[in-house]
Design a protein around this nucleic acid. Structure first.
Lengths: 145, 145
DNA sequence: TTCATATAGTGGATTTTGTCAACTATTTCT
DNA sequence: AGAAATAGTTGACAAAATCCACTATATGAA
């Protein structure tokens, strides 16, 4: 087994570990009422304030009609507000309402809590080693992004 | 920001990076005809030869009726064979057919290929650092599993 | 200008995916 | 033996996701 094969093997092993460990496979986000997709959309809106729907479509590779409906639902539940763009009248800005922002914060807090549980037993030294290992992975695999 | 918060922050950053980088969000597995769930089921059957359906249900946390139907479909497409257990007549062993085994190999080869592309530009030294970083993460986060 | 083409978003129809509850056939527990 | 638990199946349904056609703008070229 050469070095490349060994690396492939290692990444596969890591993927198995990490998907299970981080619960990426569960389709409902941490027992909340939101699906993983909905959660990611909320995060996305929070991150890029005043993004238009199509930005999210591109970023997340989801169908535009699918997103349109989810956003519609968010509006109905007063999580999000739509606003027609002035420059381009086709585009719609999407922003979090106060309630939406609070809800998004709550979701973030829940992931933080989940992560906290995983790292609760770690010493300061282990935290350091973990952080730098993660950084190493990002810096090596994320070279050209 | 204390050490724990810093670690949480780092893990969140890594998760964002990794889900995108590894394409965990795409619901169809690498443009194949199989869904991510179906692919994982095939991998599972390959890994534990002669497992019973319920093993997969437990391992993957999916509904038994859901699995039952997927397995039924696999049988129809001649990917999988069911066999009644002798000891426990309720249980059904599930094994890959020749075609199923070949198909599973093909799927594995596809992920390998995908990984290969990501690491193609790396030097031997970087491969080493990557592997040991991944091992570090597993050893620290996977303590009690 | 005007016509073709592209883009942003919406809504109808449909398919795929996943869940829930009821049921059969065993097995295990007491 | 009888009650409770387990493995799997099926029907009915709900949720998630896709496909297609459509409107309304915007862009680019003749």
């Amino acid at each position: 087994m050469d070095k490349q094969e060994k690396t492939i093997h290692e990444i596969r092993k890591f993927n198995r570990f990490y998907t299970v460990s981080m619960g990426f496979l569960d389709s409902n986000y941490l027992d909340t009422q939101y699906s993983v997709v909905e959660t990611r959309i909320l995060f996305e809106i929070q991150k890029n304030e005043r993004c238009i729907q199509n930005d999210i479509v591109k970023e997340m590779h989801i169908d535009k009609s699918y997103l349109s409906r989810i956003i519609k639902g968010f509006c109905k539940n007063d999580l999000v507000r739509k606003e027609k763009s002035g420059e381009d009248k086709r585009a719609t800005f999407v922003t979090l309402t106060e309630k939406g922002a609070a809800e998004t914060e709550r979701l973030i807090e829940l992931t933080n809590q989940q992560i906290k549980e995983k790292i609760s037993g770690l010493s300061a030294e282990e935290c350091d080693r973990l952080c730098s290992a993660l950084d190493t992975v990002i810096s090596i695999l994320g070279r050209d992004e």
